[in-house]
Amino acid sequence: MESVVGLLQLIINGAATGCIYGLIALGFVLIYKATEMVNFAQGEIMMLGGFAAYTFVGIFGMNYWVGSGLAVLATAAFGYLLDAVVLRRVIGQPQFAVVMLTLGLAFIFRAGAGIAWGYDSVAFVTPFTNSIVRFGDTLVLGADNLSIIFGTLVLCGVLYLFFSRTRLGIAMQASSQNQLAAYYMGIPVRRVFSLIWAISAGVAAVAAILLVPVQMVDVNSGIVGFKAFAAAVLGGFGSIPGALVGGVVVGVVEQLAGFYLPTGFQEVTSNIVLLAVLILRPQGLFGQVIRKRV
């Protein structure tokens, strides 16, 4: 009985971390589907979102919900500007030029955050910090992890409604599938793309805020972006539900590896999962194979 509870706790913790991976992966996938760019700075945007929330809640002393909302909006605006000012200019260059470009941006963001907020880890008090939830007599779970899972589910619901019900959401889907056709239908494709960058930056900020009770924010928080690649690849890099499921799988496997395998394995788990998927099933679990027509 003890071990079953232990296992369950392990899985829930893993799923919570996995949700964070999934949310970042979601950001990759949204941008990739629309513009075929891969944003290697997604983790760093999340880090900036965390610092923004810290500024509003921790420094200015705002209410948690208000401050978090503002941080998400600020990060989204940042994402919009990033596309409008920088990335729009490199359309048409090879894909790996964009990879390098976003890697360069990641360095700049890291240094910028260091200059603005310093190199120490920071955190602020959230309603979920250090509280626990009991299920029955034996199962005790941290409210922090549960809030991550719950928050992710809510966010996904909102995004789903946005993409399927609103005009803008449908315009985004249309632009992702066929830029030219969408353009001829009168959709302002470039602005829509910038909005997609805004959404994915906003999602990253939400991930950062959900993560605060579990892990402090510092300039190197963006490293999780690399783990989120495993999630996105596992999900087929074009599928939004795939990214989330991939994130949870990676998170859980990583927890289990950390518990059952010798030290050192946990940090490479996501990479091994990633390589295994790419070698065995390059299209991911949910992807499909498409070939060039000549």
Binding site: M100, G104, L105, A106, F107, I108, R110, A111, G112
Partner: peptide
């Protein structure tokens, strides 16, 4: 690193 990043960009 940030200068490298900037120049790369």
């Amino acid at each position: 690193p940030s200068l490298f990043g900037l120049i790369l960009v």
